[in-house]
Computed example of a mutant assay.
Amino acid sequence: MDGDYVIGGVFSFHYYMHTVKHNYTTMPEPLSCAGSINSRGLRFSRAMVFAIEQINNSTKLLPGIKLGYEIYDSCASVSVAVNVAFQLSGGLDPVFNTGDKCSQSGMVLAVVGASGSTRSISMSRIIGPFNIPQRVADVIRRSTAKVVVAFISTGDMKILLEELSRKPSPPRQWIGSESWVTDRDMLRFSFLAGAIGFGIEKSVIPGLRDFLLDLSPSKVADSPLLTMFWEEAFNCRLVKSEATDRSVCDGTEDIKTLRAHTLTHLISTSNH
């Protein structure tokens, strides 16, 4: 959305980047995301939009000034996050800007995110991704340490644990950040000797819950990202397509009727 001042946002709407094995005989394809929608990242972005709208609608905070925003998907990938950092600092790129809501191409004045320390550090340094394998599984396997402290995002932690599960290391005590230690999907890594972490105290942001639940098919259709979320949540298509067996949404879909797990993922920002 255009504005007098534009704020950038970078969140992990997907957990993975679509990887391509380059043969270096043709021009590489643009980076793209893979997998299903990560509702946590979507929730963060909606909270950012909510905050900007609250500021724009206030007569006291920034009178006479309209804030705009550019929000990008980092795919929980350093490569994409660095690419996005260049877009935010150098103007819009047709590959990333697929909508018609932004006409200005000036660089943003501030950035919220990325929603993970690994991508945030990479973006802050603006260094290109060299695809040099390292970062960490063999070091953990060889180490004599009995405790591992992992302050890391859920997406990055899954990649690490999936690699460790190929050849489990000796049992250790894990200490984790709230992002992954409260994720039930981590229970599938049975080789972990134990894990302890910290949860964030709950609070309520007035008006945010109602804002997140105020979605209708007409509002969703204006956003490709919300359209993807809507179609996955209700297993239907907003626009008829021969490429899928899903039926066309009939307009009776109500976000408040979603099963508790899906709904909790979307609105739980109001509890943090």
Score class of each variant (00 low, 15 high):
E232C: 10
F11V: 08
V139Q: 05
W174K: 03
Y15P: 06
G68T: 07
T269M: 10
D222N: 15
N57A: 11
I196L: 15
I152V: 10
G35R: 06
I71H: 00
R46W: 04
G113N: 00
S12P: 14
V6A: 14
R40H: 11
L109F: 09
M123S: 05
F151N: 05
Q173E: 12
N23V: 10
Y72W: 10
S36I: 04
Q54Y: 07
C33A: 08
Q134G: 14
Y69C: 12
P129H: 14
P168M: 05
E253K: 04
E242F: 13
L266A: 03
G116N: 04
C75F: 01
P30T: 03
E163R: 12
F96Y: 14
L160Y: 03
S241H: 12
S143M: 12
P129T: 09
P224V: 07
N131M: 14
G197I: 00
A110M: 09
Y5S: 10
V149W: 12
L88G: 11
R142E: 06
S124M: 15
G41E: 13
V95R: 05
R172E: 09
D210I: 00
F86V: 14
G207L: 07
E242W: 11
S169K: 03
A51C: 13
A145D: 03
R172I: 13
G106E: 14
I126T: 12
S36W: 05
S218L: 04
T144W: 15
V78A: 08
G128A: 11
V147Y: 11
A221I: 05
F229I: 00
S165C: 02
V108W: 06
S58A: 05
I205T: 05
G106R: 15
I71F: 11
G64Q: 06
A76Y: 07
M1H: 03
S124F: 15
L109G: 08
Q104R: 15
S74L: 04
R237M: 14
A233V: 12
T25G: 10
E178L: 04
S190N: 13
S165Y: 01
S270V: 15
L187D: 08
I7M: 00
R237G: 08
A150Q: 03
L226W: 06
F11K: 03
D183L: 12
R172C: 09
E162D: 07
S203M: 10
V148E: 02
G194C: 13
A145Q: 03
T227M: 09
T252Y: 09
L164E: 06
F229S: 01
A114H: 11
V149D: 02
F130V: 15
G251E: 10
C102K: 02
L213F: 02
W180P: 00
T257D: 10
E232W: 14
I65K: 05
K146L: 14
L263D: 01
T25R: 11
L42T: 00
A137H: 11
F13Q: 01
L215D: 00
P170R: 15
F189Y: 08
P28Q: 02
V181H: 10
S79P: 01
P94N: 04
I7L: 04
D245A: 14
Q134T: 11
D214Q: 09
W230R: 07
G8F: 02
L213V: 01
G64L: 06
A34W: 11
A47P: 06
A195G: 09
Y72R: 02
T154C: 06
L225E: 09
L192P: 05
T182D: 05
H18N: 13
I132D: 13
H18T: 09
K66T: 07
I37W: 03
